[in-house]
Design a protein around this nucleic acid. Sequence first.
RNA 1: GCGAGGGUAGCCAAGCCAGGUCAAAGGCGCUAGGUUGAGGGCCUAGUCUCGUAGGAGUUCUUGGGUUCGAAUCCCAUCCCUCGCACCA
Length: 926
Amino acid sequence: MNAFDLGKFETEAQEQWLHAFESNPSKLEKCYLNVAYPYPSGAMHVGHGRTYIVPDVIARFWRMRGKQVLYPMAFHVTGAPVIGISKRITKKDPKTIHLYRDLYRVPQNVLDEFTDPLTIVHHFASEYQRVMTACGISIDWRRRFTTVDPCYSKFIEWQWKHLYEAGHVIKGVHPVRYCTVDDNPVGDHDLLEGDKAEVIRFTLVMFQYGDAQIPTATLRPETIHGVTNLWVNPSVTYVKALVDGNAWIISKEAAEKLELQDHTIEIKEEIAGRDLIDKRVVHPLCGEVPILPADFVDPDMATGLVMSVPAHAPFDFVALRDLQNAGKYTVIKPVPLIKVEGYGDIPAQDAIERAGIIHQMDSRMDAITQEVYSAEFSKGKLFDRYGGKPVRIARDDVAALMIEKYGSEVMYEFDTRPVICRCGNRVKVKILHDQWFLKYSDPVWKQQVSDHLLNMALVPPEVRLEFERTIDWLKDWACTRRVGLGTRFPWDTTQLIEPLSDSTIYMAYYTIAHKIREIDAKLLTPEVFDYIFLGKMSSELPEKKKLDVMRKEFLYWYPYNYRFSAKDLISNHLTFQLFHHVTIFPKDKLPLGMVVFGMGLLNGAKMSSSKGNVFLLEDAVHDFGADTVRMFLMGSAEPWQDFDWRNELVISTKKQIERFFNTVNEFKDADGEPHDIDRWLLSRLQSHIGSTTEALANFQTRQALQEAYFGIETDLKWYRRRLPSTIDGSRELHTLCSVWIRLLAPFIPFTAEHLWKEVAGEGLVSFSPWPVEDKTLVNTRIELAEELLARTVEDIESIKKLIKITPKSITISLAPVWKHDIFRIIATSSDRNSVIRNIMKDEIMRKRGKEATDAIKQCTTLIHRLPPSVVEPLSREPINEAAVFEAARGFLEKEFGVPVHITNADSSEHPKAATALPFKPAIIIE
RNA sequence: GCGAGGGUAGCCAAGCCAGGUCAAAGGCGCUAGGUUGAGGGCCUAGUCUCGUAGGAGUUCUUGGGUUCGAAUCCCAUCCCUCGCACCA
């Protein structure tokens, strides 16, 4: 009749919860929680589950504690990924089809529609809502929106108007990875290869060659003084091209690249590499040098020609040495210019010879180059005749000088290659114009954020440092994009506001999301939002009454209390939103706190949709039940720790819920008279209530479950053991059930809701009052008595185990009064050294001699071993041990199946009796 | 490489900030016994080593140090996770 059936509990509760969590301003104190909204491009897995269940548990907790709780949800559909996905589905890319059809189980007819990117996000947004609901997440769904809703775009425009007016939006140029086939910048997820590649800024050193110039790209312009020659690949065909009207000799590849980097290119003629060999070039800072052949020169690296500094560049040194070993160019000597500790005059030579490098192709060349470069960069100094500056300073100085006086230009190139787009094309660096930035580098802005961070609650506290570092480190952020979904950038409507920049203050939008829909988006001018969010009046506000309602909502809910998000967003989103808030909202509307989550693992490995290592949340709910999923996710680790989903562990979580269910069913109708053990149970219950409450107030879901579930379960086991077999449970068990259900309700709301109906009769447990610790029910003496009994039982068991005889009787021999005196004196004394002397001053003690000093030592050890919760009350007043054991004699005899005698140690003949201590009676088994 | 966090018994994980209450909570797994009596049930005990009396010994990545005393503090070392930007 009342079977454990999670599926049934879920169905029952869902009906009653349908609109239960819709939350409106009220007289109650508010609690506004929100979590980073999802980008719905795929199905939810158990990792997502935790992200939304943690805030839900906290929301349910505060709701029961009588707060007006708001937990809203929306969908972030801004950005480019779904554009790519829809393209790949259109092209019938097998990997993508497999992912969506087989892993996410999108029905074929829906999948067919995925050629439209909006369909993808809308489909999965609905899926998210469905699965979140199935998980019992108590969201106010009336406030759901997506970031491409017209009203939301109006809101974003308003936000940006304020950012702009504050001077945080600036225009600039920016080098990006660019695919010339797609004609678009490419992000990491668009890359087939080279996603680690960084764009590096090279200086082009311009050598004069007849009427043309040869640019060589370098990261170390200061080494110009040590150039002995250039390197050219003899088997490569170079071109002479007019670059911005000047004749340059460069590789063909370089010509294409430079065209993307703000240069006009007009190719005039081809020049074979070998025709350049032995020609001479000149630069004012190094004089005239020859061009030498080198096969290692890559035409696809920067300009395709390089300058050679054999004294400081191991590659150059070896290449030159190889030529000279063949008897060529023997007059060329490396020209050193940097002094660096740990190396001789020619660092490159030292490094090469130390490593015993024979030829250019040695695999260690890169490492040696790195070693020399970083040694020179960190510790090197230019020779006095070149200015004597440290390398790290001279490098930038020389580069600036060259650009100013010697015609040098900047060229961007990747540090590693190849970099290949998903379309198969080589990615190049392009300088984007009309690129807009958010000026996160602004020290004044940074300071405002840092100042506010001091007022914020951060969970766990360790993340504070990371936030501080991030604020400090943040540079200007390119905030507009050319492709994707999103809101048009107001100052250049061909561009869109970038996804991380349109999701920073939407927590404020939640407060009005369900109301603003009633107004035509066209009417939503900045003045409207100025009124709602800032209280600024304007003459012609539309729908003033509706605006007033929204103003009230905002004032009631804002600022939010806590924002939840995974820790990988600290370095961007979570910090960005602080920047935006401090600019737009007044001080009393700034965020109050943040909770940062750890990451999720599946069977020990990182969850990843693309690798197929995911467990869908829906499947988990189906296989184990929503409560099981919730309890497992909340109990296996604290929110900020990484957690690992393992099916075997989840199964045992389900058994635990079932055990709870059975126990409640067994006890809820008990109506016996209470005994001492009931008073003990209730006393213990109070501390579980207290600890659970404290843990949840600190977001410690795991700790809370330990207290609320295992703490109470362990007590009940002892209770049952202690209960005389002739007696039924007392009516206090009904109280315990009522409390227990409520303590667990945030974690396993479905089961709790079902049981609540049986225990309380009516109302939803979700809105029932959270249990409050009743200090008047706390009975330290009874708890101590049970503690003494339990410890003694344990001791008897371990002795029985050791002596391997069949006991015929057990004698418990209690410590005499004088030992209790000693115990108390030691426990209350602060100075352990003098305490022995003080005790032994006493005449009576001294008469006891060694017996007394032994007792002192033993008591000292015992006091160290006992928890303070035991020592503290004992030191105030000993308990009547004889009464405790007399009362429990029946229990002990039942436990051990032999007669149990209780004696006083000082009247016992048995030598063991002398070992009796307070709270640790001597045990004699015969 | 840089920034942040972390490494605890078979596994997960508490403890570390405020050093002695730590052989180290709790859960899982495993083993034994009991109960019911057939099998994802419940209860009890055990689960580093030794021990015929509730104890002792060696442990908390590794190596040093501070201290009467360190899982806990300091230094170094190795390993792991996250972030390093135009990407949600």
